[in-house]
Simulated scan of single mutants.
Amino acid sequence: MKYEDYSTVDFIKDEYFIRWVKDPDEQSDKFWKMWMAKHPEKREECLHARNMISDMGYQYDPELTEGDYVEMFEGVLKKSRQASLKQQRYNSSILSRTLKIAAVLAIILLSVFGVLRFLPIEQSQVVQLPVITKKSPMGQKTTTWLDDGTKVHLNAGSDISYPERFSDTVRVVYLKGEAYFEVTKDAERPFIVKTGNVQTTVLGTAFNVRAYPDESKINVAVVEGKVRVENSSSIAKRFKYTITRNQMTSYDLSSQRLTKEDFDPDEILAWTKGIIHFKGANINEIIRTLERWYGVTFVVNRQLNRDKDFSIIYKNKSLTEILEGLSFAFEFEFEINDKTVILN
């Protein structure tokens, strides 16, 4: 259902609308104000729904008793009656509609509460759409399309999870690893990529996110358009950055600091073109990259110089050719046994 067809009750039940009322940010505030300006015939219902959500502290709490629910809605009705006494010219039809909606909501929530009391815990969970997970195994890169037309390039050793069908209000995906997104524009449905405590929000753009679990940083690089990068942790210091074309943010997981800088697209997006690009990389970074790229596991039997920086570009090179070059730079011998690389 589109927002143009929403009633007050529909707005009250909408996840993105509730989030705007309870925890507004710059984007959601701008969206709803522009939407109401574009649809003035719905402005009254929007504001009415917002006031009701604010009045009753709208949130689901499984510990509430029936008495708590009754008390909560009596408060809503009491406010409506007080408003009518203060405003003698208040339109009686609007008041009547307020009371009816409050009553309907009270009945719905009391009914749900009654059912939840007698259902087993596992049956009382909210029904959700099936979640799809696409994996790009070690040694492979894959491309997938989401139901909104967004194209996602997954780097080796990465996976992405998303609902079978996006909602009418927001598009959220969860990434582990590295991916390049070509997002289909949809001004009414923000596209959000979540990686741990960091989330990236866009409306339509092309950008790269790198967030491997075994790395200490989360990088977001914008190729086209504009994105907002922010954290959702209640423990770390909150941040919110907006970055545009050829800008990148880097979030350090240990210090919980975020920096913004320009970047070289040829370096950051080299993997999407089948190119391995090392720039100032140490041997640990090189080994992790080669493990993902070629689907192998390294066994290191000797001490390597981990302080040495290494910069080079490999295109269409075999693992053996790369190791031959690295063996001179880092002074090791190697052997490849199936999927295992041994450094001596």
Rank of each mutant, 00 (worst) to 15 (best):
R165G: 05
F166R: 01
F166L: 01
F166W: 03
S167Y: 01
S167D: 08
S167K: 11
D168G: 01
D168I: 00
T169G: 00
T169Y: 01
T169M: 03
T169F: 01
V170D: 01
V170A: 03
V170F: 05
R171P: 01
R171N: 01
V172A: 05
V172C: 13
Y174C: 04
Y174A: 03
Y174I: 04
L175A: 07
L175D: 13
L175K: 06
L175M: 12
L175R: 06
K176L: 10
K176W: 02
G177K: 12
E178K: 07
A179T: 03
Y180H: 10
Y180W: 10
Y180T: 03
Y180P: 04
F181L: 05
E182M: 05
T184F: 07
K185L: 06
K185F: 04
D186N: 08
E188A: 04
R189K: 02
R189N: 00
R189W: 00
R189H: 00
R189E: 00
R189I: 00
P190H: 02
F191R: 06
K194D: 06
T195E: 02
T195P: 04
G196L: 05
V198E: 07
V198Y: 09
Q199H: 09
Q199D: 01
T200N: 15
T201H: 08
T201G: 02
V202M: 07
G204D: 02
T205S: 11
T205A: 13
A206H: 06
N208F: 15
N208R: 15
N208C: 12
N208Q: 08
N208W: 14
V209M: 11
V209I: 12
R210H: 02
R210K: 07
R210I: 00
A211Q: 06
Y212I: 12
Y212M: 12
Y212V: 10
P213M: 10
P213F: 13
D214R: 08
E215V: 10
S216E: 04
S216G: 12
K217L: 13
K217R: 11
K217G: 12
I218K: 15
I218F: 06
I218G: 07
N219S: 05
N219I: 14
V220W: 08
V220G: 02
A221V: 15
A221C: 12
V222T: 12
V223K: 14
E224K: 15
E224T: 11
E224G: 09
G225Y: 11
G225C: 11
G225F: 14
G225T: 14
K226E: 09
V227C: 03
V227F: 03
V227D: 03
V227N: 01
R228I: 03
R228C: 03
R228Q: 06
V229M: 03
E230D: 14
E230L: 13
E230H: 14
N231G: 09
S232E: 15
I235S: 10
I235R: 12
A236E: 15
